[in-house]
Design a protein around this nucleic acid. Structure first.
Length: 382
DNA sequence: GCTCCACCGGAATAAAAGGGAA
DNA sequence: TTCCCTTTTATTCCGGTGGAGC
């Protein structure tokens, strides 16, 4: 008897689960035709051996920014085949490569130039990057399209040096993808002027559009007639409420199916979607909390403590509680300020700065953005 | 020994609205 | 009433330290 016996051919509602992964790149991206053709309009220059203009893509999470960019990359490379061009398109996720050095080193490696992760100065790495263009290794002038996904993270952490370097390298065209419209405030005027960019905005998907997207994936990934009629509209409606997040919609759909498998039913019911929602939320919080550094966990604990006591959480009060809780092993208020920002970025809390006049100064009001019980569970272990 | 980088904190600057002067 | 000042904290700027890869 093998432990894997019987598990592999367990009954399932899925045909091919992978098509429900948000990283899967379909052949068609419904309701993004306009954005795709905008990119194509700019990039077509590359096929004539002209460096295309820089592009900036804005949009909330799950609005298809990454998918559209990757789709366009694929198409461009395909179109370039057989033509007398030397086009490369490289995708860099700035959450994985968080400094100028790392991004350039990564680009070098993608283009076949080996550079170490450390030890070299930034200048050396930039030089060998630029040499890739001078040396003409590929016979034809290299045109490089760099897609910098979630660039706001990089800019916030490491400044705008990366843009400075890339805009000052010939034959490089930058596509910046950002969740925030105001990410340009991280860019200094001197760099901004050399970034001659076109902007493309990705609006959130509406409920009906999400239905279309889900419908298309469903035929690929689920067996026939396993979804109750209300499943897809419900996923779409819930995701539409979450700022039109298609990734979330797909997550809901997949998790609902997994729940059906788990329960051993052959049909996915609408109720499973609601259950999936709780499950996803729970997992998200647990994941975040588990990977948080100790000090940040303490801050979160303090927020939880104050929330439970129904006290208004001002930054000053929070710091008091935090200091009390960590008994000596503390960091300064300056750090807490950063932690609060990070927690806000993660979506666990929200802050609102208010000013209370002459004798009271300014303060941040902090609000927990998730269920107390979920957070408790995550912090105090399962 | 050199560089990158994560982590940290001090100091300077900005912001908002009540208080008070005109 | 209007307008500037004051107060207090938020926020930014910037530099130091030490570990890790080379």
């Amino acid at each position: 008897m093998n432990i894997f016996d019987g598990l592999q051919d367990k009954k399932t509602v899925f045909k091919e689960k992978k098509y429900l992964d948000h990283r899967f790149l379909p052949d068609r991206l419904p309701h993004r035709e306009e954005q795709i053709s905008s990119i194509a309009k700019y990039w077509v220059e590359a096929l004539n051996n002209v460096t295309p203009p820089d592009i900036t893509i804005y949009g909330k999470t799950g609005t298809g920014k990454t998918a559209v960019a990757k789709f366009a990359m694929k198409q461009l490379i395909h179109a370039g085949k057989g033509k007398n061009t030397n086009i490369r398109a490289e995708y860099v996720r700035c959450t994985d490569y968080t400094t100028e050095y790392q991004v350039i080193a990564r680009l070098c490696q993608q283009l076949g130039q080996d550079v170490p992760y450390r030890g070299w100065t930034k200048g050396e790495v930039i030089n060998s990057f630029r040499n890739l263009f001078r040396r003409n290794v590929f016979g034809k002038d290299l045109i490089l399209l760099v897609v910098l996904d979630e660039i706001d993270i990089l800019l916030k952490k490491d400044g705008d040096g990366i843009l400075y370097t890339l805009t000052r390298t010939d034959n490089v065209s930058i596509v910046s993808i950002s969740n925030f419209v105001d990410f340009k405030r991280f860019i200094k005027p001197r760099v901004k002027s050399s970034l001659r960019d076109r902007e493309i905005v990705f609006p959130p998907y509406g409920a009906q559009q999400l239905v279309d997207i889900l419908q298309e994936r469903t035929t690929l990934s689920f067996k026939a007639n396993v979804l109750k009629d209300d499943v897809i509209p419900l996923c779409a409606a819930l995701a539409a409420k979450e700022e039109g997040d298609a990734r979330y919609a797909l997550d809901l759909l997949r998790t609902s199916g997994e729940l059906a498998d788990e329960k051993g039913t052959e049909i996915v019911y609408g109720d499973y979607v609601r259950e999936a929602k709780d499950y996803i939320e729970h997992n998200k919080i647990t994941d975040i909390v588990m990977t948080l550094p100790t000090q940040q966990q303490r801050v979160l604990e303090s927020i939880l403590y104050l929330t439970k006591r129904k006290e208004e959480i001002t930054s000053g009060r929070l710091y008091e509680v935090y200091k009390f809780k960590s008994k000596g092993d503390t960091v300064t208020y300056r750090r807490i300020f950063d932690f609060i920002n990070e927690l806000e970025m993660l979506g666990i809390i929200s802050t609102n700065t208010v000013s209370r006049g002459r004798a009271k100064g300014r303060t941040n009001i902090i609000d927990l953005q998730c269920e107390i019980s979920l957070l408790e569970e995550a912090i105090w272990g399962m």
